[in-house]
């Protein structure tokens, strides 16, 4: 399987070193095209006026927030079931990036909500679920950092990630239920009956560009994590040899 070709960290480092500059470039290009379309080809929405342009950030950010968690969950399975050496590196690298995009989704959702609903925060199903997702990301990061030895923490965090993955659809279901009980006065749905193509295309391009950006960030962060672990083991060896030298002297 292709994934296992990169099980060797050195091969991963070589491959990623070659691929990364292209990824950055492609991401920048696609995002540039997307931004142009977002501002110059997409018309004003008949309901929301220009604030629909916030959607071109908000929706890709929310999509990436979920994609990142799916990536972490998949990596966690790789850690627990197949003991793939880079699986927990992937999970650890993805968490802060996922958290950042979740934060961005919340903030842009809030900035979109104020002119639309008249309030900075709305306890609707989407925002509430994303808020809980944000808390779950923070929990993952906090648990990672609580362990000195990344190796030991890896499998425990993998368990948390998978429990969280099971919890996410339950949360979505629960919050939807809760929301139908407490239906707000004005319910806004941006993805009404249809999305007009002039809005859909910029959205898709921005989503693609954001995804490329995420992948580039993820691979770069994975490289850093591999380096960090090498550094750790080298420092440990250095400390051991220093102690051994001192013991002899």
């Amino acid at each position: 399987m292709g994934v296992f070709d990169f099980a060797n960290p050195t091969r991963f480092m070589n491959f990623s070193a070659r691929v990364l500059p292209w990824l950055w470039g492609l991401a920048a290009l696609v995002l540039a095209v997307g931004l142009y379309m977002a501002f110059f080809t997409a018309p004003q929405d008949y309901q929301q006026g220009n604030t629909v342009r916030i959607m071109f950030i908000h929706v890709p950010a929310a999509w990436l927030a979920m994609f990142a968690y799916a990536l972490i969950a998949t990596s966690s399975i790789g850690t627990l079931v197949w003991r793939h050496p880079l699986a927990d590196v992937s999970a650890r690298a993805a968490a802060p990036i996922g958290a950042a995009f979740t934060f961005l989704a919340l903030v842009t959702g809030s900035l979109w909500g104020k002119p639309m609903w008249g309030t900075w925060w709305e306890w609707d199903a989407r925002l509430t679920s994303v808020l809980i997702l944000f808390l779950m990301y923070l929990g993952l990061i906090a648990l990672w950092r609580a362990f000195d030895d990344p190796g030991r923490g890896a499998r425990i965090v993998a368990v948390l990630a998978l429990v969280g993955a099971v919890n996410l659809p339950i949360i979505k279901f629960s919050v939807d239920w809760w929301n139908t009980l407490h239906q707000p006065a004005s319910v806004f749905r941006f993805d009404g009956p249809t999305i007009h193509p002039t809005i859909l295309w910029p959205l898709l391009v921005m989503a693609l560009g954001a995804t490329l950006l995420f992948v580039a960030l993820h691979i770069a962060a994975m490289r850093n994590e591999v380096l960090r672990r090498r550094l750790r083991s080298m420092q440990a060896r250095a400390a051991r040899s220093t102690i051994a030298a001192r013991a002899v002297a």
């Binding site: 929990g139 362990f147 425990i156 969280g164 919890n167 949360i171 809760w178």
Partner: peptide, 26 residues
């Protein structure tokens, strides 16, 4: 999850909270 940590109490509460929300809601 936090049994191996020494001061895991507060972190545990943070981790558990999203799991408790559906039970609370229903």
């Amino acid at each position: 999850l936090t049994v191996a940590l020494r001061r895991g109490g507060l972190l545990m509460a943070i981790l558990v909270m999203p799991l408790m929300i559906p039970i609370l809601i229903f």
